[in-house]
């Protein structure tokens, strides 16, 4: 078609200058707010630590080591390089396993969200996966796959996938069908629909699923490392346990908790804030 475009702005000028100034970018980050946000969480950690120390002092037992003991163990494993080596090994396993679960779950979740038949077909598998204890998954993978890298990746994937899948399916089901009709009328192609209609709509459920999935992943990776592998945080925990070093067990536990906190606060929450920025702008 070679028609010139029929709408010319000048001829029916609408609303020029009448509209109020549009809202700009969100105001520069509120520094005070950003600094005070972690205070409640830090307060809780401080209280727990103080309570622990009181308990340690009162009991005087080697089974409840004081904070100083735990800190010394933490410094030791950090100085020897063992801390970083093992955390890296464990994180790599979790990351690979979670990535595998993510790909499978997004595909399966979208399928289940869009087709009633596929939902009925896949739902039992997902529910069995959710109900099976992480210990069982870990043991079976150790038995079947031994010490190969496949073992921890598969265990983590099996642990993370069910929660992730159910949440993606839920998100897809909640996408407004009116937007699908709009996409159909304007003939948006499949990639545009995925990028602009499906994914943004399921982002909140995707994050819920990712959190649950990662939580499950942490639990099983430790088990797999205890039962079937010769390195990683779980292996080190078991090593300290067998040497009756309670402070060592606690030092690894603290290290592990710090890594999880870094992932939740540093990675997940940052990504989530960016993904749902449009909601916050809307609330202004």
């Amino acid at each position: 078609m070679t028609v010139t475009h029929p709408v010319v702005a000048e001829e029916v000028a609408l609303g020029g200058g009448r509209s109020p100034a549009p809202p700009g970018r969100p105001p520069a980050a509120d520094v005070v707010g950003r600094l005070t946000r972690p205070l409640p969480a830090l307060l809780l950690v401080g209280l727990l630590a103080a309570g622990w120390q009181l308990m340690a002092d009162a009991s005087g037992s080697a089974l409840i080591p004081g904070l100083g003991d735990v800190a010394r163990n933490l410094v030791d494993i950090a100085a020897s390089g063992a801390l970083w080596d093992n955390v890296r090994v464990t994180l790599t396993r979790v990351a690979l396993g979670f990535a595998a679960a993510f790909v499978v779950s997004v595909a399966a979740g979208i399928a289940m969200g869009r087709s009633e038949w596929l939902r009925r077909f896949l739902e039992p598998a997902v529910l069995i996966g959710l109900a099976t204890p992480g210990l069982v998954k870990a043991l079976l993978c150790v038995i079947w796959f031994g010490v190969s890298l496949l073992n921890p990746i598969l265990t983590v994937a099996l642990a993370a996938a069910p929660a992730l899948t159910i949440n993606v399916a839920q998100g897809v089901r909640s996408v407004d069908p009116a937007l699908g009709e709009m996409a159909h009328v304007y003939r948006l192609d499949a990639l545009t629909r995925l990028r602009y209609v499906w994914l943004p709509a399921i982002v909140p459920d995707l994050f819920t699923g990712a959190r649950l999935g990662i939580a499950m992943a942490w639990k099983v990776i430790v088990l797999v490392e205890i039962f079937g592998l010769a390195d990683g945080v779980g292996y080190q925990l078991n090593l300290e346990f067998s040497q009756h070093n309670v402070a060592g067990v606690l030092a690894w536990t603290v290290a592990f908790a710090l890594v999880m906190a870094a992932i939740e606060y540093g990675l997940l929450q940052t990504l989530e804030r960016r993904a749902v920025r449009w909601r916050r702008v809307a609330l202004r």
Partner: peptide
């Protein structure tokens, strides 16, 4: 421009 939304081109529809 014709519908009077030039200033809002880069805004989210929710505003």
């Amino acid at each position: 421009a014709a519908v009077g939304l030039t200033e809002y081109a880069r805004s989210y529809p929710s505003v």
